[in-house]
Simulated assay, not measured.
Amino acid sequence: MKAEARLFGGVALFFWAAAGLYGVWSGEAAGTTALVVAGGMAGVIGFFFLVQYRRRGSRPQDRTDADVAEAAGPVAFFPDESPFPIVVALGSALTATGVVFGLWLFLIGSVVLARGVYGMVFQYARR
């Protein structure tokens, strides 16, 4: 994950440098803000990869002297089917529709959305 952390960290630095130059030369706030936000999103991903690298250590893919056989075995946990993504989608749709049509629909959508997110987060907590 070290290579991925460096890659996304470099992308974040590029966007932030471009935002600084763009903000000075153009004086336009919307483009500068978009570049700063894009750099922030890349920075979050880079930070995630850096934390995973420090937590789990080096992978065989990170070393140049590694053999293919070192990466064999189970990769990760892949969950089976779950109803919660559909609940989250329904809650998001109801919440967005509630912004247009009224507070009552927004509140219903928020409850459905919160239940879906809670279910997605904690469905494998006892695993």
Rank of each mutant, 00 (worst) to 15 (best):
R6T: 06
F101K: 03
A93R: 01
G43F: 00
S92A: 14
A29I: 08
L21Q: 04
L90S: 10
A114M: 07
G46D: 09
V51D: 02
V75R: 06
R126H: 09
E70L: 10
Y124Q: 13
F8A: 04
S110Q: 11
L35D: 12
Y124I: 04
E81N: 04
E4R: 13
L35R: 02
V112Q: 05
A71P: 11
A38T: 12
M1H: 14
L13W: 08
V99H: 04
V51L: 14
V68W: 10
G57H: 03
A30T: 13
T32D: 01
E81R: 01
R6D: 08
L90A: 15
K2T: 03
D62Q: 11
A93F: 14
P85N: 12
L50P: 02
S82V: 11
S58N: 02
V100F: 11
T97I: 02
F48C: 09
Q123A: 08
P60R: 02
V75P: 00
K2Q: 08
S110W: 03
A3E: 15
A30W: 06
S110C: 07
T97K: 03
G46F: 06
R126G: 07
F14S: 10
V51P: 00
A76Q: 00
G91F: 13
A114Y: 08
E81Y: 07
A18Y: 12
G57D: 00
L103E: 13
V75H: 10
A69R: 07
G20H: 10
R63L: 11
T97H: 10
R126F: 04
D67W: 08
A96T: 06
A89H: 03
G27T: 09
L21M: 09
Q123H: 09
L13M: 12
M120W: 10
V24A: 14
F106E: 09
G10R: 11
G109I: 05
A17N: 01
P83Q: 08
G10P: 10
S58Y: 01
V100I: 08
A72K: 01
L13E: 08
S82E: 14
L35K: 07
P60V: 04
W16I: 04
G10E: 09
G98S: 06
T95E: 05
T32R: 01
R115A: 15
M41E: 11
I108E: 07
F84N: 14
P83V: 10
L113S: 13
G57A: 06
V87Y: 14
F14T: 14
G109W: 08
A66R: 00
K2W: 03
L107Y: 07
G31V: 01
F77Y: 02
R56A: 02
F106Q: 09
G9N: 03
V112C: 05
G39V: 02
P83A: 15
M41Y: 12
G98T: 05
A3W: 12
V100D: 05
G46Q: 06
G39Q: 02
L105H: 00
A71D: 15
G46V: 05
A71Q: 12
L21E: 00
A34K: 10
T64E: 15
E81L: 05
V44Y: 04
V88W: 12
V11K: 07
V75F: 06
P79K: 09
G31Q: 09
A71C: 07
L107K: 04
P85D: 14
